[in-house]
Nucleic acid binder design. Structure first.
Lengths: 204, 204
DNA sequence: ACATTTGTTAACCAATTGGTTAAACTATAT
DNA sequence: ATATAGTTTAACCAATTGGTTAACAAATGT
């Protein structure tokens, strides 16, 4: 119960569940531990969310709904590619520093349960590349940027932004950095990554 | 029991355990399932590897020992930065296509158990940035490449190479690709990624 | 005031799980 | 042949786990 005031019990449970599920995963999480964290009886979990599976799905959808808008920003707004990359990189890294477990959680559980994404794709707000693709193709044709497919560019943007958080323990070990140091590295990336991408694709 | 001939029972078990642990993680894996996959009695698992934890550690170290040499190649050999990036990208993606669960497995369990990496760091072969750092700093000073820290460059290289495999289900959904299509995307990346990085850092 | 719905709890339960045991089987040495 | 050490199995066990129940308390409506 980190936050003192959760509006209602339902949200209180969801917050506790979020913490536990995100750090231990679906199979590693224990209902009793979630109940303890929420400061309630275990039976209450089942009263509000019928089963572990449903509680998990609530947490997962909630987590995903935080990420999706961030992606839509880069995919569907009307700014230039360069602006998009700059804004996204800065915004996204800021966002993830606040929710460090999020990307790893989503990636992990999606790998464990690939059919799960089908449900998400039905949602209207699910990120879609169509518009971004048109923009990239056009910019390539006009010679604004070097030839690259929208898909590969999109993958690169995601990779450079998300990976350092997903692989944090690994990278910390390789680069011999402590937590404070690592945070500085990530802060630098808010501008570094955008420059890195733009340098790579802009026409000379 | 995919492979017909495992030299000895120990390896037979390890292979089965690898498959199960890598797809379900430590907490999701069941000893019974590993035994079934290995075609042996569950008690045999405990006979050869005392506990689930020890069996898991054997699998994990084995997996990590496959990855480490790949990284050392880029960090410690004597070729130019440009060559290193080209070789690593091509080799690494080829390697991962053969072991698709590997990076996700390592990242996942390391996040779950960050102290675990301390044991690995003790090993002599653990990847180390020192030499790479000198090389990058020198190339920057000589003006061969644009200013960038070795750490950030290294993170970018890892990110661009590893992330697409870790986040496969997510990216497949966003880009609306099927498995065959996705494999083509990854094949393209064997050269695309190297070009992307080199374009970004080489001096104009 | 009383009944009914909603929220909460402790005790319980069946299934699963990692791990053990003791007996049996197999090979090797003597 | 017989003892010995290593290998394999089925049955078993205690602990854990997700989930249920039945009784109780607190609101809410009438």
């Amino acid at each position: 119960m980190s936050k003192a005031k959760d509006k209602n019990k339902e949200e209180q449970i969801l917050n506790a569940a979020k913490t536990i599920f995100q750090s231990k995963g679906m199979s590693g999480a224990r209902m009793q531990e979630i109940a303890d964290k929420a400061g309630i009886n275990k039976a209450m979990l089942h009263y509000y969310y019928r089963s572990k599976q449903l509680l998990f799905e609530a947490v997962f959808k909630n987590a995903f709904s935080l990420l999706a808008p961030q992606l839509n920003a880069i995919l569907n707004d009307d700014s230039s590619i360069e602006e998009k990359i700059k804004n996204f990189t800065s915004n996204y890294i800021t966002f993830i520093i606040k929710h460090p477990y999020l990307p790893n959680f989503i990636i992990q559980e999606l790998n464990r349960n690939p059919e799960f994404i089908l449900k998400l794709k039905e949602d209207k707000g699910f990120p879609n590349l169509d518009k971004f693709k048109i923009q990239v193709d056009e910019d390539v044709k006009k010679g604004f940027i070097k030839p690259i497919s929208a898909e590969q560019l999109f993958i690169n943007i995601l990779a450079l932004n998300i990976f350092p958080f997903v692989a944090k323990p690994l990278i910390m070990a390789f680069t011999n950095t402590d937590d404070k140091n690592y945070k500085e590295l990530m802060e630098d990336r808010k501008t570094e990554v955008a420059n890195f991408i733009i340098n790579s694709i802009k026409s000379t």
